[in-house]
Design a protein around this nucleic acid. Structure first.
Lengths: 224, 224
DNA sequence: CGGTATATTGAGTGTCTTCAATCTCAGTGG
DNA sequence: CCACTGAGATTGAAGACACTCAATATACCG
């Protein structure tokens, strides 16, 4: 079926044989909005390569409040960390937009890591990149105001997911999800969004968001 | 000289020959409090293994305010991420307590990663562990109050650095450094420390901190 | 078309930050 | 030995920012 594991950047160093092995062993499935792929704390027996759709990766905190750590979309690989460390999943992965995933059993991933040092290095670089992003976000969340972070997140969503024909962000989130990325209360997101709107920085159409004034948002987010 | 790279956990999978190679190529130096090992944004040509002492690893944010991301002590390896990704350093490393470091040239590290898949996997697991810690901290900083985070950090300092004979934390930080871990203002740290003190949770002797009531601090930090 | 989930708005409050003044301590030089 | 100095620590007061709670409105789903 139309699975494009091979297109994914992370698998670019695989040999033809390795790619075939992967294609034999992998297993594609589709999932609906709301479906949970794996749950924080559970053991998982493989990882997933995203073929289509969008997922949110989050940790659950005090009184069940989610903290969204990352999103995954086409080409991304999720759950690999728990496989590498052979530890229970440290996050939950949930479908935001109907998704097609390829399951890769852990033995396959581990054997590739062991046998192909380029692949291994690529994977390591991916982890390092994610680590750096996490560190930047720690700094931001510790030092910026909610307004600045919301502006920053909107810009991130634009660069990560792009816009549709009308200029609306391709990713559609609830206000609560937005709050759970920014790390604030839902009401604060609502108030700030409407403030951004009246300042003509963005346009709102229900859940859809259009970015009108990129540079002003950048300035606002201190992303100079 | 008394360099114990070999003792470090991360090098446990190296063969005798690889260990010898490392010993030939590495280079030990001592550094004083305040010395900067590498600076955010600079290219570095190798990484360091900590033999003795304590360093802080931080990012510099708005108006020069530091955000401390991690500490490093005996057995830890720092700067390896930039080597693996061949990118400029994404953090600054500065000596907090007089330090002895072994320099490992990047070629050596990279060749070990390529030739020894167990070492490579160990390094990957280390990165994954750091990534998970970073994600947990994002959640905490986004969801917990400053009081809760300060309690949590005190506990972390205790488990990471231990106590001296009198029960004081082995690591000595300025109030400003503490604030730069917790992600708050120096004055807030001061006020909260004195609050903890009057609640008999801790004892203060200048910069030294003694933890008196571990379980109350745990409860306070929601670290149940 | 109902029912539920999500969004919105307002009011009140608490936590934390900022700014400014003062204090303490360790190190330095006379 | 002591005054001097600068860095860090402390305290107080004022105010901003963001959160909570509660009520209401709107959108979405079957």
């Amino acid at each position: 079926m139309g699975c494009s594991v091979a297109d994914s950047n992370i698998f670019k160093s695989l040999s033809k044989e390795e790619r075939e092995l992967l294609n034999q062993e992998k297993n594609c499935n589709s999932y609906l909005k709301g479906d949970i792929i794996y749950h924080e704390g559970n053991r998982i027996s493989g990882c997933y390569c995203v073929n289509k759709g969008i997922l949110k990766i989050y940790k659950t905190g005090i009184e069940g409040k989610e903290q969204i750590i990352a999103f995954a979309q086409k080409g991304d690989i999720i759950g690999y960390r728990s496989i590498l460390s052979s530890e229970p999943a440290c996050t939950t992965a949930q479908v935001i937009d109907d998704t097609l995933l390829c399951y890769i059993p852990s033995e396959i991933l581990l054997s590739l890591v062991k046998s192909n040092s380029s692949f291994s290095l690529d994977l390591m670089q991916l982890t390092c990149k994610e680590l750096n992003q996490a560190n930047m976000y720690i700094k931001d969340i510790a030092q910026k105001t909610v307004r600045e972070r919301l502006a920053e997140i909107l810009l991130m969503l634009k660069t990560t997911f792009g816009e549709d024909g009308e200029g609306y962000l391709q990713i559609i989130l609830t206000r609560e999800d937005l709050a759970n990325i920014v790390g604030t209360a839902t009401e604060s997101v609502i108030r700030l969004l409407s403030e951004f709107k009246s300042d003509n920085l963005i346009e709102l159409s229900n859940k859809k968001i259009k970015i009108l004034n990129l540079s002003a948002l950048k300035k606002l987010s201190y992303d100079l």
